[in-house]
């Protein structure tokens, strides 16, 4: 409780604290809108496409398709996100490939989401009973049509809760991009804190902003879940 007291004291003791809180809102929110949110949305969208592709490769009968997918998922899951980010931004220039901070972050985060989400999608597809495939075949559908029209819509519903988890983790993970000079929300917070030395106030403010973003996203998740589950018994 003494920690909470300290926080409240820092924020409210001198009126300058409240002023600083208000004044740093705009730069942080700007950082959020210009970088954190686009970074999250773009990486997630690209990541989902990668994930779908990887899941299909892992479920295929061909070993030549399965092997690279397995290796990709294993490598990404087995290495820290920060290291991946540094390899793309600081490592690639050694190969004479220089990528700007923002695209570097997009590449690293997309690859990361792609690996984690592919496992979610694969498990969701496997959770749909075999009879659904057979029913698709017996009305004359090919394998790919059955996948598209019958299996994926049902798998989507199963995968929404775990994918939302991945998504919300991603929002928070984008703060790592501050370490490769992307001026996103947390980088802005660091800049202000370095200038004012009000670390507690500024970082708590940053935390609140992340929390608000994640809370709003969880409302969107609930809405999507409700929409997708309208056909199931409750």
């Amino acid at each position: 409780m003494s920690l909470l007291n300290n926080v409240l004291l820092t924020i409210t003791a001198d009126m300058g604290g409240w002023e600083l809180f208000k004044n740093s809102l705009l730069p942080m929110i700007t950082g959020g809108i210009k970088y954190t949110i686009p970074l999250t949305l773009i990486s997630f969208a690209v990541g989902i496409v990668l994930a779908l592709l990887t899941a299909m490769m892992r479920l295929s009968n061909s070993r030549f398709l399965r092997a690279p997918a397995v290796a990709y998922v294993s490598a990404i899951r087995g290495t820290p996100m920060l290291v991946q980010l540094f390899i793309v931004f600081y490592g690639m220039p050694s190969l004479n490939i220089t990528i700007d901070p923002f695209p570097s972050a997009i590449i690293a985060f997309s690859l990361n989401v792609g690996a984690y989400a592919s496992e979610i999608i694969r498990a969701s597809i496997l959770s749909i009973p075999k009879g659904q495939w057979e029913a698709g075949y017996t009305v004359g559908m090919s394998h790919s049509t059955t996948l598209k029209r019958i299996i994926l819509p049902q798998a989507a519903r199963v995968s929404i809760p775990p994918l939302s988890n991945t998504f919300i983790s991603l929002v928070k993970d984008t703060s790592l991009a501050s370490l490769i000079l992307v001026t996103e929300l947390f980088r802005r917070a660091q800049e202000i804190a370095a200038r004012t030395y009000d670390f507690m106030l500024i970082y708590v403010e940053a935390a609140i902003l992340y929390w608000v973003i994640c809370f709003l996203l969880s409302l969107v998740q609930e809405a999507i879940e409700r929409r997708l589950s309208r056909y199931t018994a409750r």
Partner: peptide
């Protein structure tokens, strides 16, 4: 294969209706 499959309609023991339709 497709031609064989499309000759017949199948009714399953566990119905296997598409639950999202």
């Amino acid at each position: 294969w497709l031609r064989l499959r499309r000759k017949s309609g199948m009714v399953f023991q566990s119905y296997n209706l598409f639950p999202h339709k």
